[in-house]
Write a protein that binds this DNA or RNA. Structure first.
Length: 261
DNA sequence: ATGCCCGGAACGTCCGGA
């Protein structure tokens, strides 16, 4: 089972890029973020024609997440538990072929002197609590998405440029580590332990893509039952380099073997 | 110091993004 995560920065603006990537990469499950539409606006028919089922948690203009899967999508959970007042569409969970997956759009948190930063940290506390609950099931689990966290300085093109940013603040990073240390595996880092310059996001501005000045903020976190089945894992830079209307993020994918060897 | 580049909403610019 090939599972990918991709922040598409509007599913409507990105539909041609998404369609061609689905046809080319043929993932079994895709975790999308920032679809920027309500469910009624999601191009379910077009994507369905490529053989995918869809589950959507939408929102007008901002945020919004979705799950695509070739196999049936079961036991859908909408929203991250822990705050009934939170209206932002940033979390959707489901089970596909016995693998529980979640698509996560973790708040960015900038600027750090605004309420957005404490919102990010509170949201991470809620994710910590929920991940703990899910891990207790002792099932294959993939928590994938745009975490808006560069875990270490190896994941940034230049730590000085990013110093103080919500993506790499020590308090952001320690909460991310706490979630990982519940017993999750960063699939990309497990497969490529020492690889620097492996980015998943490049800002549209300042020629960041052309200079290859990016950050690795999109992650696939695996429970031990999923990590036991981890095959290849990589970042596909091709969609980011497309000449017409690329997303500023590019897909990260991993393969889960059908059984233990 | 500020905008740069984008998408959405809307139709003039502004907000949000990372």
């Amino acid at each position: 089972m090939k599972i990918a995560t991709w922040n598409v920065n509007s599913i409507k603006a990105r539909l041609p890029r998404v369609m061609e990537w689905l046809a080319e990469a043929a993932p079994d499950v895709v975790l999308l973020q920032e679809i920027k539409t309500v469910a009624e606006g999601f191009p379910e028919t077009e994507i369905g024609d490529l053989g995918y089922n869809t589950a959507v948690l939408g929102q007008k203009s901002y945020n919004g997440v979705a799950i695509l899967a070739k196999r049936p999508i079961e036991d859908v959970v909408e929203g991250l538990p822990g705050d009934d007042e939170d209206e932002q569409a940033r979390y959707l969970e489901a089970v596909i072929d016995g693998v529980r997956v979640a698509t996560i759009y973790l708040p960015n948190g900038n600027p750090t002197d605004s309420p957005k930063f404490p919102y990010k940290l509170r949201w991470m506390d809620r994710l910590y609590d929920h991940a703990k609950t899910l891990l207790a099931y002792e099932e294959p689990l993939v928590l994938g998405g745009d975490y808006n966290i560069a875990p270490t300085d190896m994941d940034l093109f230049d730590p000085k440029v990013w110093e103080g940013d919500a993506l790499c603040r020590p308090d952001s990073r320690s909460k991310f580590r706490a979630i990982v240390h519940l017993g999750l595996t960063d699939a990309y880092r497990a497969r490529h332990p020492n690889k620097a310059g492996a980015y998943s996001f490049w800002d549209y501005q300042k020629g960041r893509w052309q200079r290859d000045e990016g950050v690795r903020i999109d992650h696939l976190l695996l429970s031990s039952q999923a990590a036991d089945r981890l095959g290849d894992c990589d970042i596909d830079r091709t969609p980011r380099g497309h000449s017409e209307k690329p997303s500023d993020h590019t897909p990260v994918w991993c393969e889960l073997r059908e059984s233990l060897e």
